[in-house]
């Protein structure tokens, strides 16, 4: 048995009494909103105007949460089932056009499974340079090619 300093019960009294006068560490969450950091991975948002229909995201998605449909005229509609989504961000990682972006909106609970299926309707390509809508991520490495 290694030598230990003198023990006595009730060692926590000072910090307990200090806690009494400190602001609580917990918050009344649903009433007080909680903000997640900017790079948090929650609700995926698809900027369909940039989509080129390569379906890398569909092939890579671990849970089959994404569907891309060709609506003609080089327009694509994306459907994401938030109930299946793992929020891993692999789709955003592999997308060559940075069409998919994960936002920090994490309050996704719903009473109905159907309402978790989000459809991003096809949009025509913007006339001007589309680079502005893509959110550049810090030091994004190149995506593995097919």
């Amino acid at each position: 048995m290694a030598k230990t300093p003198r023990r006595r019960p009730g060692r926590m009294i000072p910090s307990l009494l200090r806690s009494l006068f400190r602001r609580p560490a917990t918050t009344r969450y649903p009433f007080v909103k909680w903000e997640m950091p900017d790079r948090f991975r929650a609700r995926p948002v698809v900027h369909t105007e940039n989509c080129i229909g390569c379906k890398m995201c569909v092939r890579n998605c671990p849970s089959g949460a994404i569907q891309i449909e060709d609506m003609g005229e080089k327009m694509f509609q994306a459907t994401i089932d938030l109930g299946r989504c793992l929020y891993c961000g692999q789709c955003a990682f592999v997308c060559p056009k940075k069409t998919i972006e994960l936002t920090k909106d994490f309050e996704l609970a719903a009473f109905d499974r159907a309402s978790l299926v989000v459809v991003y309707h096809a949009k025509p390509k913007p006339v001007e340079e589309p680079a502005a809508s893509a959110q550049p991520k810090a030091a994004e490495p190149q995506a593995p090619a097919a």
Partner: peptide, 9 residues
């Protein structure tokens, strides 16, 4: 009090 001692609400 129990909660406040533990730094909770």
């Amino acid at each position: 009090l129990y909660a406040r001692f533990q730094n909770r609400v």
